[in-house]
């Protein structure tokens, strides 16, 4: 911090003014450099957290461990037991990613989404960096949207790892066969992989709701753990509630009721209608919760 560092700077001639240019320091020619958008920044931040790699590693490990366990024991769950399609894994490795997705969608994927979502704002508040980034001329709205997008992107990478690892280890342990749909028809391996990718994307849309819910709680508290717990409590309470017939009326409005609609991809022909309905519900919930989070965050006093 030698003061000479300041004085030693050679006096550069004042830059020429350009019409419409604001005149603060960053517009000097010397300032010209790489300009990253908010998505790039948020992505960089995620890449510089251990949590992200834990989630990715965990998601990639699941299909491997599942395939390994089934391969070693050589006895799958009977039909109707365990996650969907699990009973068919022994005959066809292509069912590894499908059953992995089916298993993950119950708890682990929502958990990963809730972790990612709840860290978005509260995690930065805990770190103290929230006030640092809000001292920069960026709108809070763009911050929250880019954070949401990047969290979804992170899960996208995670789901891609599940699908890739599932297909890889399914092929290694059991070999890939043409996929038999729920309707009893057979589709080619390539078409089967296509269906699996669609299932993963469907899961991503479902998880976007979880991210939005966690994001909302993340703006309401300064503790990411509190946000995570709140998200999961709400998620589980709603899941339990809809099992009671008294709360049947609630079911169509709850996004978690639609998590199982990916099954319709494995009908022949694909039943697009329930899938479309599910995606509509996911979209409405994601948009609504994110908008709510933005409303909270927009006026929030940053005291962290």
């Amino acid at each position: 911090m030698s003061p000479g560092g300041v004085c030693a700077c050679p006096p550069t001639p004042p830059p020429e003014r350009h019409a419409g240019e604001s005149c603060h320091g960053s517009t000097r020619p010397a300032m010209r450099g790489a300009h990253h958008g908010p998505l790039h920044r948020e992505w960089t931040k995620l890449l510089f957290t251990w949590r992200t790699y834990l989630i990715w590693g965990g998601l990639a490990a699941i299909p491997f461990l599942m395939a390994l366990a089934l391969y070693i024991s050589d006895t799958g769950p009977g039909p109707g037991e365990g996650p969907h399609f699990m009973s068919r894994v022994l005959e066809n490795g292509l069912y590894v990613p499908v059953s992995a997705l089916a298993a993950l969608l119950l708890v682990l994927l929502p958990l990963a989404a809730a972790v990612l979502g709840s860290y978005l704002i509260a995690g930065e508040a805990e770190l103290g960096t929230l006030r640092a980034i809000l001292l920069r001329p960026q709108s809070r709205g763009s911050l929250i949207v880019s954070k949401w997008v990047v969290a979804v992107l992170t899960l996208f990478v995670g789901l891609a790892l599940v699908v890739a690892a599932g297909i890889l280890f399914g092929a290694l342990f059991f070999g890939l066969e043409p996929l038999v749909t729920l309707s009893g028809t057979t589709v080619s391996i390539a078409e089967g992989i296509g269906l699996i990718v669609l299932t993963a994307l469907f899961a991503l849309a479902a998880m976007a709701c979880m991210i939005s819910l966690a994001l909302l709680f993340s703006t309401l508290t300064n503790s990411s753990l509190t946000a995570l717990i709140a998200t999961f409590v709400v998620f589980i309470v709603v899941q339990i509630l809809v099992t009671f017939s008294f709360f049947d009326w609630l079911e169509p409005y709850v996004f978690s009721s639609y998590f199982g609609e990916y099954m319709n991809f494995f009908r022949d022909p694909i039943a697009w209608r329930p899938i479309g309905e599910a995606l509509l519900v996911f979209g409405l919930w994601s948009a609504g919760l994110t908008a709510l989070a933005w409303l909270v965050f927009r006026r929030k006093d940053i005291l962290s």
Binding site: S26, R32, P38, I133, R136
Partner: peptide, 8 residues
């Protein structure tokens, strides 16, 4: 980069 372009 949140304020504007920054050169190395």
């Amino acid at each position: 980069s949140m304020t504007g372009p920054v050169s190395e």
